[in-house]
């Protein structure tokens, strides 16, 4: 059997796929920003000396690291509304799922960066009479930030790929839009190959760009 390719059938609906791509980028961007905030707070809690702060933060991180993202999507979309009595838009539920999940991972990135700075740095700065905040801001964070760049970028790429799960909540990101185009054209091969390539081009280009940035940063340091 010879398969007749028909890419033009799909490209006629390319505008729908562009809408999807914009949806993907929007979801990823909002979730990364919120995820960083969540991650920063959780990381500070995990580094705290108070058990009351540390324990819930640890539980939060472990829960997200050991459960599938898809469960979080469904939980925020179908389960949480029942508890709070308000229903969420697919976008809201997806952002909640992605930003809390990535927050857990970002927290580990931040914490890892900070604890990787040798004790001698703390001692050296304290010996100069600097306070905890000053040491953190002037000595530790500048060094730690540089070490966080690579794992932070990796995590953000993971998050971007995970946005595809929002299609299961009928949020109009790239995969969901592709499903719509498929239901119009009945051309799954062409549709799904096209969006796979779109993801690939965006992610591959971005990851090479980031590698260049990392390289520059590493050389500067």
């Amino acid at each position: 059997m010879k398969y007749q390719w028909d890419f033009p059938a799909v490209w006629n609906h390319f505008d729908m796929l562009v809408v999807g791509l914009v949806g993907t980028v929007k979801l990823a961007a909002v979730s990364i920003v919120l995820g960083v905030i969540v991650g920063f707070v959780v990381a500070l809690m995990r580094l705290s000396h108070r058990r009351m702060l540390r324990a819930p933060a640890t539980a939060f991180v472990e829960f997200y690291r050991n459960t599938p993202p898809l469960v979080h999507f469904f939980w925020f979309f179908y389960a949480l509304p029942i508890m709070v009595g308000v229903s969420f838009e697919p976008f809201t539920a997806a952002v909640l799922a992605l930003s809390t999940q990535s927050g857990a991972f970002y927290a580990e990135v931040f914490r890892g960066g900070i604890v990787s700075i040798e004790g001698g740095q703390w001692e050296g700065a304290k010996a100069l009479g600097m306070s905890y905040r000053e040491v953190m801001r002037r000595v530790i964070l500048p060094q730690a930030l540089r070490r966080m760049v690579a794992p932070f970028v990796d995590r953000s790429f993971e998050l971007t790929k995970t946005t595809a799960l929002a299609s299961s909540l009928a949020y109009a990101e790239l995969l969901y839009q592709a499903m719509q185009v498929n239901s119009i054209t009945f051309r799954p091969m062409e549709v799904y190959t096209t969006i796979a390539l779109m993801y690939f081009i965006v992610l591959f280009a971005a990851s090479n760009l980031m590698r260049l940035v990392e390289y520059r940063l590493a050389r500067a340091g």
């Binding site: 398969y3 790929k161 595809a164 799954p188 091969m189 190959t193 796979a196 690939f200 591959f204």
Partner: peptide, 21 residues
């Protein structure tokens, strides 16, 4: 690179809906 730079879900959907063709 192809498998690492596309979402897994897209890969699964591709293998289920597109690949059989």
């Amino acid at each position: 690179e192809i498998f690492r730079n596309t979402p897994v879900l897209v890969q699964l959907i591709w293998f289920y809906y597109a690949f059989p063709i």
